[in-house]
Design a protein around this nucleic acid. Structure first.
Lengths: 150, 150
DNA sequence: TATTGTTATACTCTATAACTATA
DNA sequence: TATAGTTATAGAGTATAACAATA
């Protein structure tokens, strides 16, 4: 049988390019590539940046809750926070009331670095969405945030 | 406090939730989770589904070009195509003109499965974007595709 | 007995260098 | 010499079970 001519049925009308999941994947890959490269001089991964930002907005957060916020498992959070602590970007402070847990805090150095990284991340957003107008960029963000609510 | 200036001035007010890269990441994770679960009974990963769809649209494509289309490295394409071939979803046919390369084709079984999977992927799109109206869903897809052009 | 954080482990994904067979 | 595909390998990312300290 000739594999080239073996197709007698017409291809379905659904194309890969019309699937939202596929488009999301491609767009996210592009955005990630930009951020990973831009953070490389700082030897920092996107998840570590997100962790710093979450610590800033939630000073004293427990590791388990940080893991939830990052959508990672507690064991991954251990490794991540270890690295931030070793680089003096974050602090673990034992809770007085429940001595099993820590409160996590940004260090001064962590705060300073975070503000630098946030500017870089914003520039990456612009670079990634260079094909969009300001209006479209805002609409895209609005739709993505709305999508994540449900 | 001036309500206008309070949200337009200080750069330290950049929040994680206002970064497009972060929103893209979260949305893509949600979409991926849905697809991975839905494909689980078929023992198939999203990249394998994409490969089948690319083979359908590009019968006879070389492995190197498939790798480029999937944004993966050639060694990953080897493993991926091996699995598709072992499961009789795809065929490798040696090129007559250049006996180093193959043409890749969907098998009948691969075509059949692909059409099933495309319907599932479409249902996942709807589930992932359940918070959006039809109009918003279309606009999101348009913006994501436009973003990927540049 | 349950929970927080931790260790160990394994499986996937990704990236690179080096090999083979053809050209 | 260069190219298509392959092998081997190592590094991330991810997920689970099991353990220690504490509640």
């Amino acid at each position: 049988m000739d594999p080239v001519n073996s197709r007698t049925t017409s291809p379905s009308t659904i194309l890969l390019d019309d699937l939202l999941g596929y488009a999301l994947r491609r767009a996210q890959l592009k955005a990630f590539q930009c951020v990973v490269e831009a953070f490389e001089p700082y030897d920092l991964r996107p998840a570590q940046f997100s962790a710093l930002a979450i610590l800033e907005q939630n000073p004293g957060i427990m590791q388990a809750d940080l893991a939830k916020a990052l959508a990672i498992e507690p064991p991954q959070a251990v490794v991540l926070v270890n690295k931030l602590e070793q680089r003096n970007l974050a602090l673990r402070i034992r809770s007085q009331t429940d001595r099993r847990s820590y409160g996590l805090y940004l260090s001064r150095q962590g705060e300073k670095l975070l503000n630098e990284l946030k500017e870089i991340a914003q520039r990456c957003d612009l670079e990634t969405t260079a094909a969009l107008s300001d209006c479209e960029r805002e609409e895209l963000l609005r739709l993505l945030k709305k999508l994540c609510l449900s």
